[in-house]
Nucleic acid binder design. Structure first.
Lengths: 236, 236
DNA sequence: AATCGTATGATTGCATACAATAATACTTGT
DNA sequence: ACAAGTATTATTGTATGCAATCATACGATT
Protein backbone atom coordinates (compact mmCIF):
# COMPACT_ATOMS: atom_id res chain seq x y z
CA UNK A 1 0.00 0.00 0.00
CA UNK A 2 1.22 3.48 -0.74
CA UNK A 3 2.22 5.90 1.94
CA UNK A 4 -1.02 7.86 1.98
CA UNK A 5 -4.62 6.86 1.97
CA UNK A 6 -5.91 8.07 -1.33
CA UNK A 7 -9.41 6.77 -0.87
CA UNK A 8 -9.73 8.61 2.40
CA UNK A 9 -8.76 11.89 0.78
CA UNK A 10 -11.28 11.37 -1.96
CA UNK A 11 -14.23 10.27 0.10
CA UNK A 12 -13.67 13.09 2.54
CA UNK A 13 -14.85 15.47 -0.12
CA UNK A 14 -18.24 13.84 -0.14
CA UNK A 15 -18.62 13.42 3.60
CA UNK A 16 -20.32 15.82 5.93
CA UNK A 17 -17.47 18.24 6.26
CA UNK A 18 -17.29 19.09 2.59
CA UNK A 19 -21.02 19.05 1.92
CA UNK A 20 -21.42 22.78 1.45
CA UNK A 21 -18.28 22.97 -0.65
CA UNK A 22 -19.34 20.13 -2.93
CA UNK A 23 -22.84 21.49 -3.35
CA UNK A 24 -21.74 24.96 -4.41
CA UNK A 25 -19.09 23.39 -6.62
CA UNK A 26 -21.68 21.28 -8.38
CA UNK A 27 -24.01 24.20 -8.79
CA UNK A 28 -21.26 26.13 -10.53
CA UNK A 29 -20.19 23.25 -12.74
CA UNK A 30 -23.76 22.37 -13.62
CA UNK A 31 -24.41 25.93 -14.67
CA UNK A 32 -26.91 26.83 -11.99
CA UNK A 33 -24.77 29.83 -11.16
CA UNK A 34 -23.89 31.56 -14.38
CA UNK A 35 -20.60 33.08 -15.41
CA UNK A 36 -19.77 36.34 -13.62
CA UNK A 37 -22.74 35.92 -11.28
CA UNK A 38 -22.19 37.27 -7.80
CA UNK A 39 -22.57 34.74 -5.01
CA UNK A 40 -23.97 36.17 -1.77
CA UNK A 41 -22.96 34.44 1.40
CA UNK A 42 -26.31 34.75 3.17
CA UNK A 43 -28.37 33.70 0.19
CA UNK A 44 -26.41 30.51 -0.38
CA UNK A 45 -26.24 29.86 3.33
CA UNK A 46 -30.02 30.03 3.64
CA UNK A 47 -30.46 27.80 0.63
CA UNK A 48 -28.27 25.14 2.17
CA UNK A 49 -29.59 25.70 5.67
CA UNK A 50 -26.30 26.82 7.14
CA UNK A 51 -24.82 30.08 8.31
CA UNK A 52 -22.27 32.25 6.53
CA UNK A 53 -19.26 30.62 8.18
CA UNK A 54 -19.21 27.31 6.31
CA UNK A 55 -20.15 29.11 3.11
CA UNK A 56 -17.18 31.43 3.44
CA UNK A 57 -14.89 28.48 4.03
CA UNK A 58 -16.22 26.84 0.89
CA UNK A 59 -15.71 30.08 -1.04
CA UNK A 60 -12.06 30.13 -0.16
CA UNK A 61 -11.60 26.62 -1.43
CA UNK A 62 -13.53 27.31 -4.59
CA UNK A 63 -11.35 30.30 -5.29
CA UNK A 64 -8.27 28.13 -5.02
CA UNK A 65 -9.82 25.77 -7.52
CA UNK A 66 -10.39 28.68 -9.83
CA UNK A 67 -14.16 28.33 -9.92
CA UNK A 68 -14.87 31.69 -8.32
CA UNK A 69 -12.93 34.87 -7.84
CA UNK A 70 -13.17 36.70 -4.56
CA UNK A 71 -12.52 40.42 -4.62
CA UNK A 72 -11.94 41.73 -1.11
CA UNK A 73 -14.81 43.58 0.54
CA UNK A 74 -16.87 43.22 -2.59
CA UNK A 75 -17.97 39.72 -3.35
CA UNK A 76 -17.45 36.35 -4.92
CA UNK A 77 -17.95 36.02 -8.65
CA UNK A 78 -18.34 32.83 -10.65
CA UNK A 79 -15.46 32.25 -13.04
CA UNK A 80 -17.32 29.47 -14.75
CA UNK A 81 -15.80 26.85 -16.99
CA UNK A 82 -15.52 27.51 -20.67
CA UNK A 83 -15.02 25.12 -23.57
CA UNK A 84 -11.44 26.36 -23.72
CA UNK A 85 -10.97 25.38 -20.08
CA UNK A 86 -12.19 21.90 -20.89
CA UNK A 87 -9.86 21.68 -23.87
CA UNK A 88 -6.90 22.94 -21.83
CA UNK A 89 -7.61 20.51 -19.03
CA UNK A 90 -7.78 17.60 -21.44
CA UNK A 91 -4.46 18.59 -22.97
CA UNK A 92 -2.88 18.94 -19.53
CA UNK A 93 -4.45 15.71 -18.37
CA UNK A 94 -3.18 13.86 -21.44
CA UNK A 95 0.37 14.64 -20.40
CA UNK A 96 -0.16 13.88 -16.75
CA UNK A 97 -2.09 10.66 -17.31
CA UNK A 98 0.83 9.57 -19.47
CA UNK A 99 3.27 10.31 -16.68
CA UNK A 100 0.97 8.56 -14.24
CA UNK A 101 0.85 5.42 -16.37
CA UNK A 102 4.64 5.39 -16.65
CA UNK A 103 5.14 5.77 -12.93
CA UNK A 104 2.42 3.23 -12.24
CA UNK A 105 4.32 0.74 -14.37
CA UNK A 106 7.27 1.11 -12.01
CA UNK A 107 5.35 1.00 -8.76
CA UNK A 108 2.19 -1.00 -9.26
CA UNK A 109 1.54 -3.89 -6.89
CA UNK A 110 0.35 -7.31 -7.95
CA UNK A 111 -2.93 -6.62 -6.18
CA UNK A 112 -3.48 -3.37 -8.05
CA UNK A 113 -2.63 -5.01 -11.35
CA UNK A 114 -5.24 -7.67 -10.76
CA UNK A 115 -7.74 -4.97 -9.90
CA UNK A 116 -7.00 -3.37 -13.25
CA UNK A 117 -7.52 -6.66 -15.09
CA UNK A 118 -10.76 -7.30 -13.31
CA UNK A 119 -11.91 -3.79 -14.13
CA UNK A 120 -11.25 -4.22 -17.84
CA UNK A 121 -12.98 -7.57 -18.10
CA UNK A 122 -15.97 -6.35 -16.15
CA UNK A 123 -16.21 -3.24 -18.30
CA UNK A 124 -16.26 -5.42 -21.40
CA UNK A 125 -19.33 -7.12 -20.05
CA UNK A 126 -21.14 -3.89 -19.22
CA UNK A 127 -20.14 -2.32 -22.53
CA UNK A 128 -21.79 -5.18 -24.37
CA UNK A 129 -24.89 -4.81 -22.25
CA UNK A 130 -24.95 -1.04 -22.62
CA UNK A 131 -24.88 -0.36 -18.91
CA UNK A 132 -23.82 3.27 -18.97
CA UNK A 133 -23.77 3.97 -15.26
CA UNK A 134 -21.57 0.98 -14.54
CA UNK A 135 -19.30 1.94 -17.42
CA UNK A 136 -18.84 5.42 -16.01
CA UNK A 137 -18.12 3.99 -12.60
CA UNK A 138 -15.62 1.47 -13.95
CA UNK A 139 -13.89 4.09 -16.04
CA UNK A 140 -13.61 6.24 -12.96
CA UNK A 141 -12.24 3.31 -10.99
CA UNK A 142 -9.70 2.33 -13.65
CA UNK A 143 -8.08 5.73 -13.57
CA UNK A 144 -8.16 5.92 -9.79
CA UNK A 145 -6.28 2.64 -9.53
CA UNK A 146 -3.56 4.18 -11.66
CA UNK A 147 -3.57 7.34 -9.56
CA UNK A 148 -2.89 5.22 -6.53
CA UNK A 149 -0.36 3.01 -8.26
CA UNK A 150 1.75 5.89 -9.57
CA UNK A 151 3.01 6.38 -6.03
CA UNK A 152 2.94 10.16 -6.23
CA UNK A 153 0.74 12.11 -3.89
CA UNK A 154 1.32 15.25 -5.93
CA UNK A 155 0.38 13.75 -9.28
CA UNK A 156 -2.57 11.86 -7.86
CA UNK A 157 -4.01 14.99 -6.27
CA UNK A 158 -3.80 16.88 -9.55
CA UNK A 159 -5.38 14.15 -11.62
CA UNK A 160 -8.18 13.54 -9.17
CA UNK A 161 -9.03 17.22 -9.20
CA UNK A 162 -9.07 17.42 -12.97
CA UNK A 163 -10.96 14.19 -13.25
CA UNK A 164 -13.75 15.55 -11.10
CA UNK A 165 -13.63 18.86 -12.84
CA UNK A 166 -14.66 17.40 -16.16
CA UNK A 167 -16.79 14.62 -14.76
CA UNK A 168 -20.05 15.72 -16.24
CA UNK A 169 -18.55 16.13 -19.67
CA UNK A 170 -16.92 12.73 -19.46
CA UNK A 171 -20.04 10.87 -18.46
CA UNK A 172 -21.87 12.13 -21.52
CA UNK A 173 -18.93 11.17 -23.70
CA UNK A 174 -19.05 7.55 -22.65
CA UNK A 175 -22.69 7.27 -23.54
CA UNK A 176 -22.06 8.33 -27.10
CA UNK A 177 -21.59 6.13 -30.13
CA UNK A 178 -19.65 3.18 -28.88
CA UNK A 179 -16.94 5.25 -27.27
CA UNK A 180 -17.41 3.18 -24.13
CA UNK A 181 -16.29 0.01 -25.88
CA UNK A 182 -13.36 1.71 -27.60
CA UNK A 183 -12.37 3.44 -24.40
CA UNK A 184 -12.24 0.14 -22.58
CA UNK A 185 -10.16 -1.39 -25.35
CA UNK A 186 -7.69 1.41 -24.75
CA UNK A 187 -7.81 0.65 -21.06
CA UNK A 188 -6.91 -2.94 -21.84
CA UNK A 189 -3.93 -1.90 -23.91
CA UNK A 190 -2.70 0.37 -21.14
CA UNK A 191 -3.18 -2.41 -18.60
CA UNK A 192 -1.24 -4.87 -20.74
CA UNK A 193 1.60 -2.43 -21.30
CA UNK A 194 1.87 -1.97 -17.54
CA UNK A 195 1.69 -5.72 -17.04
CA UNK A 196 4.60 -6.16 -19.42
CA UNK A 197 6.49 -3.40 -17.60
CA UNK A 198 6.65 -1.32 -20.74
CA UNK A 199 6.44 2.14 -19.17
CA UNK A 200 7.14 3.95 -22.41
CA UNK A 201 4.23 2.33 -24.18
CA UNK A 202 1.92 2.76 -21.20
CA UNK A 203 2.71 6.46 -21.20
CA UNK A 204 2.02 6.86 -24.91
CA UNK A 205 -1.20 4.85 -24.73
CA UNK A 206 -2.52 6.72 -21.71
CA UNK A 207 -1.66 10.00 -23.38
CA UNK A 208 -3.49 9.05 -26.55
CA UNK A 209 -6.39 7.68 -24.53
CA UNK A 210 -7.15 11.13 -23.17
CA UNK A 211 -6.63 12.81 -26.54
CA UNK A 212 -9.02 10.31 -28.11
CA UNK A 213 -11.58 10.94 -25.40
CA UNK A 214 -11.37 14.66 -26.06
CA UNK A 215 -11.57 14.31 -29.84
CA UNK A 216 -14.58 12.06 -29.50
CA UNK A 217 -16.19 14.65 -27.29
CA UNK A 218 -15.57 17.43 -29.78
CA UNK A 219 -16.71 15.29 -32.69
CA UNK A 220 -20.01 14.70 -30.98
CA UNK A 221 -20.43 18.37 -30.30
CA UNK A 222 -20.52 17.84 -26.57
CA UNK A 223 -18.18 20.74 -25.98
CA UNK A 224 -21.16 22.96 -26.60
CA UNK A 225 -22.56 22.32 -23.18
CA UNK A 226 -20.29 25.09 -22.06
CA UNK A 227 -20.20 28.36 -23.99
CA UNK A 228 -16.89 29.19 -25.68
CA UNK A 229 -17.26 32.86 -24.80
CA UNK A 230 -14.33 34.58 -23.21
CA UNK A 231 -14.16 36.59 -20.02
CA UNK A 232 -13.45 39.66 -22.13
CA UNK A 233 -17.06 39.99 -23.08
CA UNK A 234 -18.18 41.03 -19.64
CA UNK A 235 -19.87 44.24 -18.74
CA UNK A 236 -17.70 47.02 -17.25
CA UNK B 1 -3.69 41.09 -23.21
CA UNK B 2 -5.22 37.84 -22.19
CA UNK B 3 -8.75 37.54 -20.94
CA UNK B 4 -7.89 37.42 -17.26
CA UNK B 5 -5.64 39.50 -15.12
CA UNK B 6 -2.95 37.12 -14.06
CA UNK B 7 -0.99 39.65 -12.08
CA UNK B 8 -4.05 40.49 -10.05
CA UNK B 9 -4.58 36.87 -9.14
CA UNK B 10 -0.99 36.51 -8.09
CA UNK B 11 -0.61 39.67 -6.08
CA UNK B 12 -3.86 39.00 -4.30
CA UNK B 13 -2.17 36.19 -2.50
CA UNK B 14 0.21 38.63 -0.90
CA UNK B 15 -2.32 41.36 -0.15
CA UNK B 16 -4.25 41.75 3.06
CA UNK B 17 -6.89 39.18 2.33
CA UNK B 18 -4.52 36.27 2.09
CA UNK B 19 -2.12 37.37 4.81
CA UNK B 20 -2.99 34.65 7.28
CA UNK B 21 -3.06 32.01 4.57
CA UNK B 22 0.33 33.01 3.18
CA UNK B 23 1.91 33.20 6.60
CA UNK B 24 0.87 29.70 7.66
CA UNK B 25 1.80 28.43 4.22
CA UNK B 26 5.28 29.85 4.54
CA UNK B 27 5.68 28.48 8.03
CA UNK B 28 4.88 25.03 6.76
CA UNK B 29 7.12 25.27 3.70
CA UNK B 30 9.96 26.74 5.72
CA UNK B 31 9.74 23.88 8.16
CA UNK B 32 8.61 25.86 11.20
CA UNK B 33 5.74 23.45 11.57
CA UNK B 34 7.09 19.95 11.27
CA UNK B 35 5.62 16.96 9.53
CA UNK B 36 2.54 15.51 11.26
CA UNK B 37 2.46 18.38 13.72
CA UNK B 38 -1.03 19.36 14.84
CA UNK B 39 -2.00 22.95 14.13
CA UNK B 40 -4.33 24.46 16.73
CA UNK B 41 -6.65 27.19 15.55
CA UNK B 42 -6.42 29.33 18.67
CA UNK B 43 -2.65 29.07 19.00
CA UNK B 44 -2.00 30.15 15.43
CA UNK B 45 -4.67 32.80 15.69
CA UNK B 46 -3.05 34.32 18.72
CA UNK B 47 0.35 34.22 17.10
CA UNK B 48 -0.94 36.16 14.11
CA UNK B 49 -3.15 38.40 16.19
CA UNK B 50 -6.41 37.21 14.66
CA UNK B 51 -9.31 35.08 15.77
CA UNK B 52 -10.06 31.51 14.76
CA UNK B 53 -12.25 32.45 11.81
CA UNK B 54 -9.58 33.58 9.34
CA UNK B 55 -7.34 30.77 10.52
CA UNK B 56 -10.01 28.21 9.77
CA UNK B 57 -10.51 29.66 6.30
CA UNK B 58 -6.78 29.45 5.70
CA UNK B 59 -6.78 25.83 6.89
CA UNK B 60 -9.39 24.92 4.32
CA UNK B 61 -7.26 26.40 1.56
CA UNK B 62 -4.11 24.77 2.81
CA UNK B 63 -5.84 21.42 2.81
CA UNK B 64 -6.79 21.85 -0.83
CA UNK B 65 -3.16 22.62 -1.59
CA UNK B 66 -2.21 19.42 0.16
CA UNK B 67 -0.07 21.08 2.80
CA UNK B 68 -2.22 20.00 5.72
CA UNK B 69 -4.82 17.34 6.29
CA UNK B 70 -7.92 18.16 8.27
CA UNK B 71 -9.62 15.32 10.03
CA UNK B 72 -13.13 16.30 11.10
CA UNK B 73 -13.65 17.17 14.74
CA UNK B 74 -10.05 16.33 15.47
CA UNK B 75 -7.55 18.72 14.01
CA UNK B 76 -5.30 19.89 11.23
CA UNK B 77 -2.06 18.02 10.66
CA UNK B 78 0.91 19.17 8.60
CA UNK B 79 1.48 17.00 5.57
CA UNK B 80 4.85 18.55 4.97
CA UNK B 81 6.81 18.43 1.76
CA UNK B 82 9.27 15.62 1.22
CA UNK B 83 12.16 15.33 -1.19
CA UNK B 84 9.99 12.98 -3.21
CA UNK B 85 7.33 15.68 -3.44
CA UNK B 86 9.92 18.09 -4.78
CA UNK B 87 11.13 15.53 -7.31
CA UNK B 88 7.58 14.75 -8.42
CA UNK B 89 6.72 18.39 -8.78
CA UNK B 90 9.79 19.03 -10.89
CA UNK B 91 8.91 16.13 -13.17
CA UNK B 92 5.33 17.36 -13.47
CA UNK B 93 6.51 20.91 -13.98
CA UNK B 94 8.93 19.84 -16.69
CA UNK B 95 6.03 18.55 -18.76
CA UNK B 96 3.79 21.50 -18.07
CA UNK B 97 6.44 24.14 -18.65
CA UNK B 98 7.06 22.45 -22.00
CA UNK B 99 3.39 22.67 -22.86
CA UNK B 100 3.34 26.25 -21.67
CA UNK B 101 6.27 27.20 -23.92
CA UNK B 102 4.58 25.57 -26.89
CA UNK B 103 1.32 27.37 -26.31
CA UNK B 104 3.14 30.61 -25.62
CA UNK B 105 4.79 30.30 -29.04
CA UNK B 106 1.35 30.32 -30.58
CA UNK B 107 -0.15 33.13 -28.54
CA UNK B 108 2.61 35.45 -27.41
CA UNK B 109 2.24 39.13 -28.21
CA UNK B 110 4.98 41.33 -29.59
CA UNK B 111 5.02 43.18 -26.30
CA UNK B 112 5.48 40.02 -24.26
CA UNK B 113 8.23 38.83 -26.57
CA UNK B 114 10.12 42.05 -26.07
CA UNK B 115 9.68 41.68 -22.35
CA UNK B 116 11.26 38.25 -22.60
CA UNK B 117 14.21 39.59 -24.57
CA UNK B 118 14.75 42.40 -22.11
CA UNK B 119 14.60 39.91 -19.27
CA UNK B 120 17.28 37.70 -20.77
CA UNK B 121 19.66 40.54 -21.53
CA UNK B 122 19.20 42.06 -18.11
CA UNK B 123 19.77 38.70 -16.47
CA UNK B 124 23.03 38.36 -18.38
CA UNK B 125 24.21 41.55 -16.77
CA UNK B 126 23.22 40.53 -13.26
CA UNK B 127 24.66 37.05 -13.73
CA UNK B 128 28.02 38.56 -14.55
CA UNK B 129 27.82 40.80 -11.51
CA UNK B 130 26.69 38.01 -9.26
CA UNK B 131 23.50 39.76 -8.15
CA UNK B 132 21.62 36.77 -6.77
CA UNK B 133 18.44 38.50 -5.65
CA UNK B 134 17.96 40.16 -9.02
CA UNK B 135 18.65 36.85 -10.74
CA UNK B 136 15.97 35.11 -8.72
CA UNK B 137 13.54 37.90 -9.45
CA UNK B 138 14.30 37.83 -13.18
CA UNK B 139 14.00 34.08 -13.34
CA UNK B 140 10.66 34.36 -11.64
CA UNK B 141 9.57 37.04 -14.07
CA UNK B 142 10.72 35.11 -17.14
CA UNK B 143 8.52 32.18 -16.31
CA UNK B 144 5.57 34.35 -15.36
CA UNK B 145 5.70 36.06 -18.75
CA UNK B 146 5.36 32.64 -20.34
CA UNK B 147 2.51 31.72 -18.00
CA UNK B 148 0.65 34.77 -19.20
CA UNK B 149 1.57 34.26 -22.82
CA UNK B 150 0.40 30.64 -22.97
CA UNK B 151 -3.16 31.96 -22.93
CA UNK B 152 -4.43 29.24 -20.61
CA UNK B 153 -5.89 30.16 -17.27
CA UNK B 154 -5.82 26.52 -16.22
CA UNK B 155 -2.20 25.90 -17.08
CA UNK B 156 -1.06 29.23 -15.67
CA UNK B 157 -2.77 28.56 -12.34
CA UNK B 158 -1.09 25.20 -12.03
CA UNK B 159 2.36 26.45 -12.89
CA UNK B 160 2.13 29.46 -10.60
CA UNK B 161 1.15 27.20 -7.73
CA UNK B 162 4.01 24.79 -8.33
CA UNK B 163 6.43 27.61 -8.91
CA UNK B 164 5.64 29.06 -5.49
CA UNK B 165 5.65 25.65 -3.93
CA UNK B 166 9.29 25.07 -4.69
CA UNK B 167 10.34 28.69 -4.48
CA UNK B 168 12.69 28.31 -1.59
CA UNK B 169 14.43 25.36 -3.16
CA UNK B 170 14.77 27.19 -6.42
CA UNK B 171 16.28 30.31 -4.94
CA UNK B 172 19.06 28.32 -3.38
CA UNK B 173 19.65 26.48 -6.63
CA UNK B 174 20.30 29.68 -8.54
CA UNK B 175 22.94 30.77 -6.08
CA UNK B 176 24.95 27.63 -6.63
CA UNK B 177 27.95 27.19 -8.91
CA UNK B 178 27.16 29.18 -11.99
CA UNK B 179 23.74 27.66 -12.49
CA UNK B 180 22.39 31.19 -12.78
CA UNK B 181 24.38 31.87 -15.92
CA UNK B 182 23.57 28.50 -17.48
CA UNK B 183 19.93 28.86 -16.56
CA UNK B 184 19.74 32.20 -18.29
CA UNK B 185 21.41 30.77 -21.39
CA UNK B 186 18.62 28.23 -21.45
CA UNK B 187 16.13 31.05 -21.10
CA UNK B 188 17.67 32.71 -24.11
CA UNK B 189 17.35 29.56 -26.19
CA UNK B 190 13.70 29.20 -25.20
CA UNK B 191 13.08 32.85 -26.02
CA UNK B 192 14.70 32.49 -29.44
CA UNK B 193 12.73 29.35 -30.23
CA UNK B 194 9.54 31.23 -29.42
CA UNK B 195 10.69 34.21 -31.46
CA UNK B 196 11.23 31.92 -34.45
CA UNK B 197 7.79 30.39 -33.85
CA UNK B 198 9.31 26.96 -33.33
CA UNK B 199 6.88 25.61 -30.77
CA UNK B 200 8.30 22.11 -30.87
CA UNK B 201 11.78 23.30 -29.95
CA UNK B 202 10.48 25.70 -27.32
CA UNK B 203 8.64 22.82 -25.68
CA UNK B 204 11.71 20.58 -25.64
CA UNK B 205 13.96 23.32 -24.35
CA UNK B 206 11.59 24.38 -21.59
CA UNK B 207 11.16 20.75 -20.60
CA UNK B 208 14.91 20.21 -20.40
CA UNK B 209 15.34 23.50 -18.59
CA UNK B 210 13.34 22.23 -15.65
CA UNK B 211 15.02 18.83 -15.70
CA UNK B 212 18.41 20.54 -15.68
CA UNK B 213 17.37 22.73 -12.79
CA UNK B 214 16.32 19.68 -10.84
CA UNK B 215 19.47 17.72 -11.64
CA UNK B 216 21.59 20.65 -10.60
CA UNK B 217 19.69 20.83 -7.37
CA UNK B 218 20.21 17.15 -6.65
CA UNK B 219 23.88 17.32 -7.63
CA UNK B 220 24.43 20.06 -5.10
CA UNK B 221 22.68 18.07 -2.43
CA UNK B 222 20.03 20.72 -1.95
CA UNK B 223 17.31 18.15 -1.84
CA UNK B 224 18.48 17.40 1.66
CA UNK B 225 16.73 20.46 3.03
CA UNK B 226 13.65 18.30 3.14
CA UNK B 227 13.82 14.82 4.64
CA UNK B 228 13.13 11.92 2.28
CA UNK B 229 11.16 10.09 4.94
CA UNK B 230 7.81 8.71 4.05
CA UNK B 231 4.48 9.24 5.73
CA UNK B 232 4.50 5.54 6.65
CA UNK B 233 6.96 6.16 9.43
CA UNK B 234 4.47 7.97 11.58
CA UNK B 235 3.39 6.95 15.03
CA UNK B 236 0.06 5.08 15.40
C1' DA C 1 -4.91 -6.46 37.96
C1' DA C 2 -7.42 -5.58 33.89
C1' DT C 3 -11.18 -3.72 31.48
C1' DC C 4 -15.12 -1.26 30.80
C1' DG C 5 -17.74 2.87 31.73
C1' DT C 6 -18.07 7.53 33.00
C1' DA C 7 -16.62 12.21 33.78
C1' DT C 8 -13.81 15.99 32.59
C1' DG C 9 -11.18 18.93 29.64
C1' DA C 10 -9.81 20.47 25.26
C1' DT C 11 -10.85 21.43 20.50
C1' DT C 12 -13.47 21.77 16.57
C1' DG C 13 -18.06 23.07 13.95
C1' DC C 14 -21.36 26.32 13.39
C1' DA C 15 -24.14 30.42 14.40
C1' DT C 16 -24.46 35.01 15.57
C1' DA C 17 -23.04 39.73 16.69
C1' DC C 18 -20.45 43.60 15.65
C1' DA C 19 -17.16 46.43 12.83
C1' DA C 20 -15.43 47.95 8.36
C1' DT C 21 -16.05 48.73 3.72
C1' DA C 22 -18.33 49.70 -0.60
C1' DA C 23 -22.39 50.96 -3.32
C1' DT C 24 -26.41 53.61 -3.66
C1' DA C 25 -29.67 57.12 -2.83
C1' DC C 26 -30.54 61.48 -1.21
C1' DT C 27 -29.92 66.17 -0.11
C1' DT C 28 -28.11 70.59 -0.65
C1' DG C 29 -25.87 74.35 -2.84
C1' DT C 30 -24.89 76.69 -7.03
C1' DA D 1 -30.86 71.01 -13.58
C1' DC D 2 -26.52 69.41 -12.21
C1' DA D 3 -22.77 68.33 -9.16
C1' DA D 4 -20.70 67.38 -5.01
C1' DG D 5 -20.98 65.84 -0.66
C1' DT D 6 -23.42 63.20 2.84
C1' DA D 7 -26.45 59.68 4.71
C1' DT D 8 -28.25 55.14 4.26
C1' DT D 9 -28.14 50.40 3.19
C1' DA D 10 -26.21 46.16 1.92
C1' DT D 11 -22.42 43.03 2.15
C1' DT D 12 -18.19 41.42 3.57
C1' DG D 13 -14.47 40.72 7.42
C1' DT D 14 -13.65 39.40 12.02
C1' DA D 15 -14.58 38.12 16.77
C1' DT D 16 -16.98 35.54 20.03
C1' DG D 17 -20.32 32.33 22.12
C1' DC D 18 -22.39 27.88 22.36
C1' DA D 19 -23.10 23.07 21.10
C1' DA D 20 -21.02 18.75 19.47
C1' DT D 21 -17.25 15.77 19.34
C1' DC D 22 -13.10 13.59 20.70
C1' DA D 23 -9.23 12.40 23.91
C1' DT D 24 -7.78 11.56 28.37
C1' DA D 25 -8.00 10.31 33.10
C1' DC D 26 -10.16 8.34 36.75
C1' DG D 27 -12.88 5.07 39.12
C1' DA D 28 -15.90 1.02 39.50
C1' DT D 29 -16.65 -3.78 38.62
C1' DT D 30 -15.32 -8.38 37.65
Amino acid sequence: MSSYDLKQEVTDKYSLRGRVFSKIREDILSGKYKDHEELKEVAIGEELGVSRTPVREAFRQLELEGLIQIVPNKGAYVTGITAKDVEDIYMIRSLLEGLCARWATEHITQEQLEELEENVYLADFHAAKGHLDQMAELDNHFHHILYEACNSKQLARLLIDFHEYVLRVRKKTLSNGGRGKISNDEHRQIMEAIKEKDGERAETLAHEHIINAYNNMVKNGLYQIYPMEDADSREP
